[in-house]
């Protein structure tokens, strides 16, 4: 019974995930695209929960669905609607054909490799304890085995924040000089 329930939840989440991803790509208004991406991130968080990644799911909703998407929506609202592209007019038609062929090639490669090489390995997941993916376990892993990655991430975020400030203040000075 529990197994059936997990399948049902998985199918709903996977369908929502793919549908909202297609919506992100095909809406012509970037505001609607950003709203669809929030649905995509939320359904991905459900899938993370099914994979017993509780902390990552919470981080996904807080950091991605919260902070990053608020930033996106703020910028989209700030810039207003200044593009009049129709959704699928990305350049000449050979470009569209090439893009679709490349996408299909990626998909076929992954399916063939998984089907040929890894099929047997992928169906025997390890048994994990109740603490798998908990904040405690992840925190211990971060502060012991992955301490370097943890510290480097903080530097990356600092550099990105400085970069954002520089990009913002530079253009302001220029527009002041022009005015």
């Amino acid at each position: 019974m529990a197994n059936f329930l997990v399948w049902v939840v998985w199918f709903f989440a996977a369908f929502a995930c793919l549908a909202s991803a297609l919506a992100v790509v095909s809406f012509s208004n970037p505001f609607y695209s950003a709203l669809a991406l929030i649905g995509n991130l939320a359904s991905l968080a459900v899938l993370y929960l099914l994979l017993s990644g509780e902390f990552v799911a919470a981080g996904q909703v807080l950091v991605y669905g919260g902070a990053v998407m608020v930033m996106f929506l703020f910028v989209i609202a700030y810039l207003g609607d200044r593009t009049d592209e129709s959704p699928w007019s990305g350049g000449p038609s050979w470009q569209i054909v090439g893009a679709i062929l490349a996408g299909g090639a990626i998909l076929a490669e992954v399916c063939v490799v998984v089907g040929l090489k890894a099929g047997g390995f992928l169906s025997k997941p390890q048994h994990v304890g109740r603490s798998f993916g908990s904040p405690e376990a992840l925190g211990r892993a971060f502060l012991t085995d992955h301490l370097l990655a943890f510290e480097v991430t903080s530097i990356v975020l600092l550099v990105a924040a400085v970069g954002g400030v520089v990009l913002g203040s530079h253009t302001r000075r220029e527009s002041d000089a022009r005015a």
């Binding site: 809406f27 970037p30 996106f72 989209i76 090439g98």
Partner: peptide
């Protein structure tokens, strides 16, 4: 590959 709006 297909869209031209940098936000999207």
């Amino acid at each position: 590959m297909l869209r031209r709006n940098p936000l999207i």
